[in-house]
Design a protein around this nucleic acid. Structure first.
Lengths: 333, 333
DNA sequence: ACTTTGAATTCTAACGATAAAATTCTAACA
DNA sequence: TGTTAGAATTTTATCGTTAGAATTCAAAGT
């Protein structure tokens, strides 16, 4: 591979001049710029990004940690981040933490050791204290879908409490009052907030929250099936089921039908996230839209603005969920 | 951040010695190793991977190009590759080509310019000729889910023809004979091979392939709905529908029910890929399993073996699809 | 013609590691 | 005691670029 040195020789200028036409920040006369560009073309020159990084102390890479590389939710998130960053010539180094504390810490260490210019984290298992500490280090850290105390400016988050409220409120408005709730893992902030919204909506409607109509799921299909099984076996009356995400709602739908329920007649179900497949369940899933792709774009923009000093980036830190009405919730009356 | 130089000073040894304890390939006496390790710990030293890359001409990064970052299929694939590589201390740089020729080429260029040690491509729009040419360059290139003429050793592929055959054969065995087929985009190799398998199964059973029961879809939900719409509006008789992937099958199921079909009684549907959601459609989707996660692992192993010279890597280049029987195909009789 | 000034360009020293060659050390053996 | 082989360690050059200081150049002002 041709180096900058060979280009400079061929063009008859110094190394520094070539470097300056590559980086087009400092001024070079049109004449020399052309000479250099010709030489670059002739040699098929491509700057060595590693050498650039070493010399400039900039790797032009952004680390991303998500819980899982698969899964519709993270897919949308990564797609948003990558698209935005790639358009700016930056690249993403992606790894995953599987929602486990050790693996998340491990992943973060890994990204730091790769000399990213910044990292964007979707972490769930690690504590706020750890993150606050992490932010004291020299690596800039940003958070997706998580609001870390005192680090608001580094967070892109969804109002999960509102989402939880919206879900429950919409079900209540359809005349349901005995409502079962399958939450995500209690240690996850998302779960907690969505549940809080649920409780607020119940309270607003003077309905008591019942422990027996609560189940802690795992945010996966199994959480939905296990939860519904639990409720059915406990022989309680309930006409609606709220699932803290769409995967669990899917699991619940599948399990419910296996148990002979006619959906949505026998049971209304609402999900959360509005993943792409939500429109292909039967009945089509009513859910809460989580604009995670947009949020991914925004996280990337935040990095572009703060780290790469790009102008004209208007940042929104907080996003609002909205109700998507389909067929899985019906009027009780 | 502490550098190797500071460590060497603190430990009272030379740079080279520190380098050798970091890379633990060459021998260092236990005594000095300990001294150096202590010094590293004391300084919180972490090797600068960029400098390592420049000096060793190894970036320890593998570029990955997939069609989309979202989507269940690619998620599984990326997860497999990343897990394997990450365990070996390598990182992945991921980008996407959106199944468009220009964007794919662009993505490849992008990865090459990032000095990856190798790249793993899932490309669909780019020609074999282009890829063969690409392989003549100095960047090692590997292919996922694609068999490039003469580059077999660099490919990890699925026997799509067999998968197509299996799908059709299984439907035929259930007594169906009027079978509609929704293919993927014709320019994609996967589509072509699956269709070829379909035709072979028909031929084996002395059933003529009918142009009017063929529709070229887009591998997305819309392909399924558009295809089924086309068949229904053409007023043909058919009792089974084969979709070249699960997304299209989902779309077809949803559309079919919207049109008042009772599934699977009125129409049997089979998909391809066995994405995670296939078990949550209604009826649960009978499909062909595509072990793409495994294949991702295998592609990574191939890189580990060829590029990073890891031993004990047994490589399987070709994978076989298998039939997953669920509820969406019923016996016609 | 002679400064002056600002733009254009070159020079030089990093950046933080690796790797090959050169050197020193250590212990065994004649 | 001197030799020698092999292990342990150091020396030195290098990877390909950037960045700031130093220099040269060109046009304008006096």
């Amino acid at each position: 591979m041709a180096t900058i040195y060979e280009v400079s020789k061929l063009a008859g200028v110094s190394l520094a001049t070539v470097s300056r036409v590559i980086n087009k920040n400092s001024r070079v006369s049109d004449k020399t710029r052309l000479k250099v560009q010709d030489a670059m073309k002739e040699l098929g020159y491509r700057p060595n990004s590693i050498a650039q990084s070493l010399a400039s102390n900039r790797s032009n890479s952004v680390g991303i940690l998500v819980s899982e590389l698969h899964g519709p939710f993270f897919g949308q998130m990564m797609a948003g981040i990558e698209a935005e960053l790639r358009a700016a010539g930056k690249h993403v180094i992606i790894t995953c933490g599987h929602s486990e504390e050790d693996k998340e810490k491990d992943g973060i260490e890994f990204l730091i050791s790769r000399n990213c210019d910044a990292i964007i984290l979707h972490v769930e298992a690690v504590s706020d204290a750890y993150l606050i500490d992490l932010c004291k280090g020299k690596m800039p850290v940003y958070f997706m879908s998580r609001l870390v105390e005192g680090l608001n400016d580094n967070c892109i988050s969804l109002d999960n409490e509102l989402g939880g409220y919206l879900a429950t409120q919409s079900v209540l408005e359809q005349g349901h009052s005995a409502i079962a709730y399958i939450a995500g893992p209690e240690f996850k902030a998302d779960s907690k907030d969505r549940l809080a919204g649920h409780k607020r909506a119940l309270a607003d409607n003077n309905i008591a929250f019942s422990d027996t109509l609560y189940f802690e799921g795992d945010f996966k299909e199994t959480g939905g099936s296990d939860g519904l099984k639990f409720f059915i076996e406990s022989k309680q009356e309930f006409s609606a089921l709220i699932c803290a995400n769409d995967e669990m709602a899917s699991g619940a739908i599948t399990y419910g039908r296996e148990q002979g329920l006619s959906l949505p007649k026998d049971l209304s179900i609402i999900g959360f996230d509005n993943i792409i497949f939500a429109r292909h369940t039967y009945p089509k899933l009513t859910t809460i839209d989580n604009p995670v792709n947009l949020m991914g774009h925004m996280a990337a923009k935040l990095v572009l603005k703060n780290i790469y000093k790009q102008k004209d980036m208007s940042i929104t830190h907080s996003f609002e969920p909205t109700l998507i009405t389909r067929d899985s919730v019906i009027n009780k009356t």
